[in-house]
């Protein structure tokens, strides 16, 4: 049980995912939500690499994780560009205050 195996990595990933989901739900700050998204992406990446190492073999898991990292950077860039633009428009990045759009 103490010896580290696939399940250990998967449990860490599961916990990371849950914390990310919690962060996304409870944050009001847009940048905070983006941080939660990064946690979720990292959780998925641990899964990919762990599965590759322990059960699938080959390179697919690592390659998939690399693409995820690249896209996460792109997503962060565009997300933060939008956050800055909104901040300049509203002087606030509180997503609950960005409420001109509602029914």
């Amino acid at each position: 049980m103490l010896h580290v195996g696939l399940a250990h990595f998967l449990v860490v990933a599961a916990a990371l995912f849950s914390l990310g989901a919690f962060c996304v739900i409870t944050r009001k700050n847009a940048v905070g939500i983006l941080m939660g998204i990064e946690l979720i992406l990292n959780a998925a990446n641990i899964n990919f690499v762990a599965f590759e190492h322990y059960s699938a073999g080959g390179l697919h898991g690592q390659v998939f994780a690399l693409f995820v990292i690249v896209l996460a950077a792109a997503e962060a860039a565009i997300g933060l560009a939008i956050v800055l633009a909104l901040f300049h428009a509203l002087r606030s990045i509180d997503v609950t205050r960005a409420a001109e759009l509602k029914e």
Binding site: V24, A30, I33, L34, I37, E75, I78, G79, I82, V83, A85, L86, A89, L90, V95, A98, E100, L101
Partner: peptide, 8 residues
């Protein structure tokens, strides 16, 4: 604002 909601 729409873009922010969309990105999140």
């Amino acid at each position: 604002e729409a873009a922010l909601k969309y990105v999140i």
